[in-house]
């Protein structure tokens, strides 16, 4: 509580900002999003492959942003943020995954099947 005398600008969490890193994150994410948009709007791939491709784009874009922008790494000052994120990610997956799964099963049993129904399994 007695940090008043230290210049807050010298704090490691200020000093870790990096133009290069932010630029890298920006470029990676933008390129990946452009790619995904292109793939989708030109219907360049069959539906399932397309789905996988844009999922991959999203995944890499998010990783790039989380690493380069949000400084999620294992350095001394970020480790707790990283631990928290790693602990929470399974919960996001569970929330979404189990919900989708249980309702896809429910719909299988209760909804009239429309031929060619695109699945969100």
């Amino acid at each position: 509580m007695s940090h008043g005398h230290v210049n807050p600008i010298d704090h490691p969490e200020v000093q870790m900002a990096s133009r290069r890193g932010y630029m890298t994150g920006f470029i990676l994410a933008s390129v990946l999003m452009a790619l995904a948009t292109f793939l989708v709007s030109s219907h360049a791939l069959p539906p399932f492959a397309l789905l996988l491709a844009i999922m991959a784009c999203a995944g890499f874009a998010v990783i790039a942003q989380v690493y380069f922008l949000l400084h999620i790494d294992i350095s001394e000052h970020n480790i707790w943020n990283t631990v928290a994120l790693v602990a929470f990610i399974p919960l996001f997956v569970i929330t979404i995954g189990l919900t989708w799964w249980m309702f896809s099963q429910l719909y299988l049993r209760t909804m009239p099947m429309i031929p060619g129904m695109p699945g969100m399994h």
């Binding site: 900002a17 994410a29 999003m33 995904a36 948009t37 989708v40 709007s41 539906p47 397309l50 789905l51 844009i54 999922m55 784009c57 999203a58 874009a61 998010v62 942003q65 989380v66 922008l69 949000l70 695109p118």
Partner: peptide, 26 residues
Amino acid sequence: LRMFWQFQAVMWVFIYVFVYLWGYMS
């Protein structure tokens, strides 16, 4: 605020890909 703002970009990736693009696809 930096974290908040960057986090909005992260969420937007999901929304853009899984709501807009995927929605457009199906």
